[in-house]
Design a protein around this nucleic acid. Structure first.
Length: 354
DNA sequence: CCCTCCCGCCAATGC
DNA sequence: GCATTGGCGGGAGGG
């Protein structure tokens, strides 16, 4: 009778709604999004559908897909429509980004171009490209808008990790580096605001991890393509846990932020802060349960037809083996291995539980 | 108090 | 014209 869950349920049954900022975070949204669409039978993603399924405003879906697209997990297919590419695309994307980033860093071979931070178009140009010869690449001002897009910002953010030699990056430093213009003032703040969103998303996928700079306690992020630490994830399946399981409610129909109401109410009700939360260093010494994000492959949730899940797994494994030899890229292969490992472990666990 | 960042207004852009 | 996209920053939540 003291668990946060119980309390919140009571509150709900009383007709009261609880607002929790955390449950509304982009990170959680993305987790749900991925859990929802990481299936074998998923190909197209409708924006309206997504918004409905996840119980959020349309606007938020744009944030999600824009960021995910920067890593190649989804791709724009058309109006109101994205297609699911899957985690298998990540290595490729990262590889490209790295190469691109390196080139920009010390590649003065080509003629053109300011030293603005990239703009190397990646995004599928609308098929109606002008019969413009030359490898070229734009130039005009048309893409000054694009320069501020979340999509590009996200790409440049990961480029920083992939190319830079220091593995701890502060949002401020990132913002500064990715600003290229107007060194100070409001632009910084805005940029940082955006970076918070991006960082949260990547963090929720365990692509990066939030830490602190050694001596200064300034928060910073570290890239962990592969060596992601084990923790949680399987907890999704351990039934009857007092823990607040991570996305038990795909449909996020929680109260709105509503000015001035809820916070006080919540306190009166006796809302206790989530116990659990950061299981940071759960003492799980040797148990190397790799987890890619707080979500798990859905195909297997209804085990018995391991066709579904296996298909995905094999697909990844195949990719891993074909991909490894050609590119000797630590980051990438590590990442893939990590994925494969995660899936294997997960399926094993499910089978046992069954 | 400062840091984090959700929310949704409304401007571009597309059709 | 309306519909889609998505910058942008006010100001609420959380430490």
């Amino acid at each position: 009778m003291s668990s946060a869950i119980v309390v919140s349920q009571d509150a709900e049954s009383l007709g009261l709604q609880i607002y929790s900022r955390k449950e509304k975070s982009l990170g959680v949204l993305v987790s749900n999004f991925l859990r929802l669409y990481n299936r074998d039978d998923v190909d197209l993603i409708g924006l309206d559908d997504a918004a409905g399924q996840l119980g959020v405003e349309r606007r938020r879906i744009y944030d999600v897909v824009n960021i995910l697209e920067s890593i190649g997990i989804v791709a724009r297919r058309g109006k109101n429509q994205y297609s699911w590419k899957g985690f298998g695309e990540i290595p490729r994307s990262l590889d490209e980004l790295k190469e691109e980033g390196m080139r920009e860093r010390l590649g003065y071979s080509s003629s053109n171009n300011s030293d603005k931070v990239s703009n190397g178009c990646e995004r599928e140009e609308p098929l109606t490209l002008t019969p413009d010869d030359q490898e070229n690449s734009s130039s005009s001002k048309m893409d000054q808008k694009k320069e501020k897009s979340l999509w590009l910002l996200a790409q440049n953010f990961v480029k920083m990790f992939l190319c830079s030699d220091d593995d701890l990056i502060t949002l401020d430093s990132a913002a500064k580096a990715l600003l290229s213009d107007s060194p100070d003032s409001v632009h910084m703040r805005t940029k940082v605001r955006r970076l918070y969103d991006i960082a949260n998303v990547f963090a929720s996928m365990n692509l990066i991890e939030k830490t602190h700079i050694p001596v200064t306690r300034k928060p910073a992020y570290r890239w962990l393509g592969s060596k992601s630490i084990a923790e949680r994830g399987l907890s999704l399946f351990n039934s009857g846990e007092p823990k607040r399981v991570f996305g038990t409610e795909i449909t996020n129909l929680r109260a709105k932020r509503n000015k001035t109401y809820c916070s006080s109410i919540r306190k009166q009700i006796g809302y206790k802060k989530h116990d659990e939360e950061n299981t940071e260093q759960e003492s799980k010494p040797a148990a190397s349960k790799y987890v890619f994000g707080p979500f798990s492959p859905i195909g297997a949730s209804k085990t018995n037809n391991d066709k579904v899940g296996k298909g995905r797994l094999l697909e990844i494994e195949a990719l891993a083996s074909t991909y490894q030899p050609q590119y000797c890229n630590q980051e990438i292969t590590g990442l893939l291995g990590h994925f494969t490992e995660a899936w294997k472990k997960w399926y094993a666990e499910v089978d046992r539980n069954k």
